[in-house]
Design a protein around this nucleic acid. Structure first.
Length: 511
DNA sequence: CGAATTTGACCCGCGC
DNA sequence: GCGCGGGTCAAATTCG
């Protein structure tokens, strides 16, 4: 009993102290208890308080004190909550503003975004005529597939990602966000039914390159990534399992378009359409749509995640990454490969001076575009036509795969980087990768004396394999899109070998 | 016999 | 409102 009493006494003293300073910031209780003054006060006034409690109506004061304390706590809580609400509202209005901008720009229906993967070395014309080419140079591309790792380990592999958009006049969005703000925004976006995908590259993007895809589009407007690749089989092998659920003859192309859905996991929303190019039957145009809702096989990470990858690639927020404003090359070079990567900034015209609005416009162009289609071209222009330009597609065409195919068939439009901008070895490999057998001989002069002939030979052999091209492109995509909530499974075999289609597969499907 | 593919029908959005 | 075209469904068929 005595113990209890003394505890009560201490409590009373503490509470009274709090009442005195109720308008001030309330310090944690344990701090007060730890103060020596407080301890003295407790001990000195112990007897007095005891007598008070016994004689007068101490229960009322006690009750009052408790209530006051509770009130103080509530005030503090209120303050905190108010701050939170204010911040939330601020974020919400920021988002609304962004969406308004996006919707305003939805009138421009003619944006066509090309994500082209190429090792061409003569893009001078395209580069000079279009300021909207983003070159990403990267060396070793692997980490998504063991095969790619094996192939590229220690090699001087360089790859060029060229992103071209046809729109030339875009407003620049300034999106200034901190990492914390991003997280909060995610919640807000969810609350407001906005679709937000945060794409963060795996380990190799730790350097701060974090891509965000904000699809402020209607639900029926899904981002699509079309992949053009030479492929003799019915479909490209992208490592995923697919089940065919339909086939149609699309207008403008007598070649039937096949519809597949991902069967790796039940309910996976990812679809793909496969159609032969009208003019070159050896070219297969595969259009991916949606994001996988399941862990991806190693070999499938790649192509399967192309949609969001490409989207994220395009929508990298330059304000999140100050590097993007200063030097594209720095921003898009993957830190893991920095040690080996040469400086590719020279691949971008005026990269140091004009890249900021250049890249920002590009991103916003795509962001604001009502046509979220992206084309990833893995078919190097075998015809080696140096005279064609990038087809900055006119507004008359629709965005269907057929139209895309037609456009593709009309142009030899692979980007050609200026040969004098290439520095030796790595780019030779790039060329070999995407040039195909026909050009091997033509570009042998790129292989300077320091290059490894065995390596070059191997790479040439590999480069002639369309599957490998697909895999490399896929690897790029996955590098950009490692993020996701999808842990990468390592249980699946490589995509380079077998076909991913579920022909004869064991996956059970339900429609 | 189970699973995958084929294929005609159906649905839906869009333009006129 | 109607027709067209893209996309999907689901019964029939084929395959292993």
């Amino acid at each position: 009993m005595e113990n209890n009493k003394s505890e009560n006494d201490e409590m009373e003293i503490d509470l009274s102290l709090k009442l005195d300073s109720r308008e001030e910031e309330i310090e944690p209780l344990n701090e007060e208890n730890q103060s020596s003054e407080l301890v003295n006060a407790k001990t000195q006034g112990k007897d007095q308080e005891l007598s008070k409690a016994e004689t007068s109506g101490s229960s009322k004061t006690e009750e009052l004190s408790l209530l006051q304390t509770e009130m103080n706590k509530m005030k503090e809580e209120n303050k905190f909550l108010r701050k939170a609400v204010e911040q939330t509202m601020k974020d919400y209005y920021d988002l609304q503003a962004k969406f308004a901008i996006i919707h305003q720009n939805n009138h421009d229906k003619d944006h066509r975004n090309f994500l082209s993967l190429s090792g061409n070395d003569d893009t001078t014309e395209g580069l000079t005529r279009s300021p909207k080419i983003l070159d990403i140079k990267n060396r070793s591309l692997s980490q998504t597939s063991q095969e790619l790792d094996d192939i590229m380990d220690g090699d001087q592999l360089g790859l060029s990602l060229t992103l071209v958009s046809s729109n030339s006049s875009i407003t620049t969005n300034k999106l200034v966000e901190s990492t914390e703000l991003e997280e909060r925004k995610e919640k807000i976006k969810e609350d407001n039914a906005a679709i937000t995908t945060q794409i963060q590259n795996k380990g190799n993007l730790q350097g701060g390159l974090t891509s965000h895809v904000t699809t402020a589009s209607p639900p029926n407007r899904k981002a699509r990534v079309s992949v053009r690749a030479r492929c003799e089989s019915a479909t490209m092998n992208d490592g995923c399992q697919w089940r065919k659920y339909g086939q149609k003859i699309a207008k403008g192309n007598p070649c039937p378009r096949a519809y597949y859905r991902c069967t790796v996991a039940p309910g996976c929303p990812v679809r793909k359409q496969v159609q032969r190019c009208l003019e070159d039957m050896s070219i297969l145009i595969t259009t991916y749509e949606g994001t996988h809702n399941h862990p991806l096989p190693v070999g499938a990470t790649a192509m399967a995640s192309t949609t969001s990858a490409a989207a994220s690639f395009m929508l990298v927020d330059s304000s999140i990454n100050p590097l993007l404003n200063g030097n594209i090359n720095q921003a898009v070079n993957f830190p893991n490969y920095h040690n080996n990567a040469p400086n590719y900034s020279h691949h971008i015209p005026n990269s140091s001076s004009s890249s900021s609005p250049y890249f920002s416009n590009l991103r916003n162009n795509i962001l604001n575009s009502s046509d979220p289609n992206i084309l990833l071209d893995l078919t190097k222009n075998i015809s080696n036509d140096h005279h064609h330009q990038f087809p900055f597609v006119s507004s008359s065409s629709n965005s269907s795969a057929t139209a895309t195919a037609n456009h593709l068939s009309q142009y030899s439009w692979m980007p050609k980087l200026p040969s004098n901008n290439y520095d030796g070895n790595s780019n030779t490999i790039v060329n070999n990768l995407f040039t195909g057998p026909k050009l091997q001989g033509d570009h042998h002069h790129h292989q300077n004396g320091s290059s490894n002939p065995i390596l070059a030979e191997n790479m040439s052999a590999i480069a002639t394999d369309p599957k490998f091209r697909v895999a490399v492109a896929a690897a790029i995509s996955s590098l950009i899109n490692k993020d996701q909530s999808h842990p990468i499974s390592t249980t699946m075999p490589s995509s380079l070998g077998d076909h991913g289609e579920s022909n004869g597969g064991s996956v059970r499907h339900s429609q």
